[in-house]
Design a protein around this nucleic acid. Structure first.
Lengths: 200, 200
DNA sequence: GACAGGCACGAACGATCGTGCTATTTATTG
DNA sequence: CAATAAATAGCACGATCGTTCGTGCCTGTC
């Protein structure tokens, strides 16, 4: 029973990279089998359909996302430090895949492709935005953000910056992107910052 | 000579919508032919390859983009009003296609697909960002933006907001997205605004 | 009324798509 | 080591992919 699991994880690992590059819909059973050095049917047997494979890829990526981005951030001091941690972790997660964050790619891919994959992706994205909202809220409670902060608005603006970073760093290979992202983040934080104590 | 051109424009019009929904790579000659009520071969004859079709779609979309987004903005009063015009026009352009802005979709689709299509898209995206930079620069000259403004940085942050809006409005069907976008835009503008005269 | 060119069509190509079946090999267990 | 179960491979399927080719229909010119 243990051999199958290993193989499956290997497939998912490889598939994740392919999906991040070419898109979740463009992942082909044949290509994936070739990349995993397996036969088409041997690989296919692990999933029961392509749709299932796509969902399992998203699930696998979701666990990776929690492990790398969310959970470590929650162990970081609440408030602005935690938000900074989310940013750094997200960039690390996105950089770990050849084609960048698979959720961004998949969102573009499935925005108009109804079905179980889209439904699953929507749930994941909803959870992610909700996480951002909660982290902003903890920053309010901590006194780092102003008490009248619209946390959903913050989530929107923060995620937007990530999307901008993602496009710049995957499509255009602009060398300054990291610096731009850094500057934009600090500017965003300053917009929400509670003006107590020293201020630059 | 005029019949062929008409047909071709019709194909491009339909293809643009399909490409905005499913992605530029997922546009299938067969599907497109069905949508245009033509035979596969009849449609194919207008282009000489799929790659060519994709490039012509981008070119067609680029002209539409200039006509709807950029040119009208340049006729608007320079400075913040012009920037606001770009924003409004972009949202209108994006909303005119079922799947949103085709360049955002295509960027995700071709970020790791080397070839002529990607090269062409890159040139277009470079031009667009350059336009944003220039418009920001004119806002500096007009005295609306501070004189130490990093115009490329503004372009990055502005485009990021558009990407955020795009994802929220195509994938998630959040009702508040338009308001979020509006608030984020004003917040962004205030970050760059020259503090001369009255200020809210 | 013969002729030309532009335009669209149907049929067919090799390749590949996702997905079943049936063996055969490989692991696990008694 | 034998028995059993799990994992993989081989092969074939109908459908569709991008592309080519030959043919016929229009429309206008001499």
């Amino acid at each position: 029973m243990t051999k199958g699991v290993d193989t499956k994880l290997n497939i998912l690992e490889i598939g994740l990279d392919v999906a991040s590059r070419l898109g979740l819909e463009a992942v082909t059973i044949g290509d994936l089998a070739k990349a995993a050095k397996m036969s088409k049917s041997g690989l296919f047997a692990h999933f029961q359909s392509k749709e299932n494979l796509q969902i399992e890829l998203l699930k696998y990526a979701g666990e990776m996302f929690s492990r790398i981005v969310v959970l470590p951030a929650l162990k970081t001091e609440a408030g602005i430090p935690r938000i900074k941690a989310v940013l750094d972790n997200w960039i690390r997660f996105s950089g770990a895949l050849t084609g960048g964050c698979i959720f961004v790619t998949a969102s573009s891919d499935f925005k108009n492709r109804p079905g179980k994959v889209r439904d699953f992706l929507l749930k994941q994205q909803g959870g992610w935005i909700e996480s951002l909202r909660r982290i902003a809220q903890s920053a309010v409670k901590e006194g780092d953000f102003r008490s009248d902060t619209d946390c959903d608005q913050f989530a929107f603006e923060f995620y937007s910056l990530l999307l901008g970073f993602h496009l710049y760093s995957t499509l255009l290979d602009n060398a300054d992107t990291q610096l731009r992202q850094q500057a934009a983040f600090e500017s965003l934080i300053n917009t929400y910052r509670q003006e107590s104590g020293t201020q630059s």
